[in-house]
C-alpha cells in the first residue's frame, strides 16, 4: 500500500533527514514508526501526503508513484489519506461537528450525507454528545479524538498519525491506540509515528525504527 524505495531527503539547509530508506507497508497493516526526535519520522509521513518531495528515490502509495502527482493533483491525493496530527490542528472557531465535516464538505457531499457520516465518526470516537461543543472546551484527549474522527470520516484507505499520543497520559494513549487498531481491523492501512516505545512495544505490530534518517529495523513484515 505504501512503499519507500531508497528514499533520501535533504532539506534546504543541507541536513539529511532521510538516507536511502526502503520500506514496504502492506494493505491492512498497522505499522509503528519510531526513533528519537529528529530521526525523520515526520518527514516520512509528510512525504506520503506530499507535503515534501524526496530528494532521491521514490514513494509509491496504492500503486501510484507520487513523483507523477502534480501540484494540481495533490488535493485529490490528500483526500484519499486520513491524517492525525500531534497538535490536533483543529479549527478553534468552529464546533466539533464542523471540524469533523471538513473533509466531506471539501469532497462535496450534500448536508444530509455529511450529517450522517459525521455522527457515525463521532460515535466511533465516543464524542457523539459533544458535536456542538467548541474544541477549546474539550480535554486534550477529546481534541485528539476529534482529530481522529476528522481523519476517518471520509473513509480513507490509509490513516497516518504523527505522535498522536504525544501529550496524553498512558491510559488515554492506550485508548487512542486501541481506536487505531479498530480502524485497522476494518481494513484501513495505519502508519503511526511515535517515540513512546513503552506503549507501542506492548501492542503486537510491526515497528519500523529510524536513527538519524536511516532505517535500522522493521523494513519488512
Amino acid at each position: 500500500m505504501i512503499s519507500f524505495d531508497r528514499v533520501s531527503k535533504r532539506y534546504a539547509e543541507g541536513h539529511d533527514a532521510l538516507r536511502e530508506v526502503s520500506v514496504e507497508i502492506a494493505r491492512d497493516e498497522l505499522v509503528f514508526l519510531t526513533g528519537h526526535s529528529g530521526a525523520g519520522k515526520s518527514t516520512m509521513l509528510r512525504m506520503i501526503m506530499l507535503m515534501e518531495r524526496p530528494t532521491r528515490g521514490q514513494v509509491l502509495v496504492d500503486g501510484q508513484n507520487l513523483a507523477g502527482v502534480s501540484a494540481r493533483g495533490i488535493p485529490r491525493h490528500r483526500r484519499s489519506i486520513g491524517v492525525v496530527f500531534q497538535n490536533h490542528r483543529l479549527l478553534y472557531d468552529r464546533p466539533v461537528f464542523d471540524n469533523v465535516a471538513l473533509p466531506l464538505i471539501i469532497a462535496g457531499y450534500d448536508h444530509r450525507e455529511v450529517g450522517r457520516r459525521v455522527r457515525a465518526a463521532l460515535d466511533k470516537v465516543g464524542l457523539l454528545s459533544r458535536e456542538r461543543a467548541m474544541p477549546v472546551t474539550l480535554s486534550g484527549g477529546e481534541q485528539q479524538r476529534v482529530g481522529i474522527a476528522r481523519a476517518v470520516v471520509g473513509k480513507p484507505r490509509i490513516l497516518l498519525a504523527d505522535e498522536p499520543t504525544g501529550n496524553l497520559d498512558p491510559a488515554l494513549s492506550a485508548e487512542i491506540m486501541q481506536l487505531f487498531e479498530e480502524f485497522n481491523q476494518v481494513g484501513v492501512t495505519v502508519l503511526i509515528a511515535s517515540h513512546d516505545l513503552a506503549l507501542i512495544s506492548r501492542l503486537r505490530h510491526r515497528i519500523i525504527t529510524l536513527r538519524h534518517g536511516r532505517l535500522v529495523s522493521g523494513a519488512a513484515a
Binding site: 472557531d93 464546533p95 461537528f97 464542523d98 471538513l102 457531499y109 450534500d110 448536508h111 444530509r112 455529511v114
Partner: peptide
C-alpha cells in the same frame, strides 16, 4: 463561519448521493 459551513441548513440541497464513494 469558515471556508465552508456545514451547519448552514438553509442551503438548498442538490442531488443526494447515497453512500457514494469517491470512485
Amino acid at each position: 463561519m469558515s471556508l465552508w459551513r456545514s451547519g448552514a441548513s438553509g442551503v438548498a440541497q442538490g442531488a443526494r448521493r447515497e453512500g457514494a464513494s469517491q470512485s
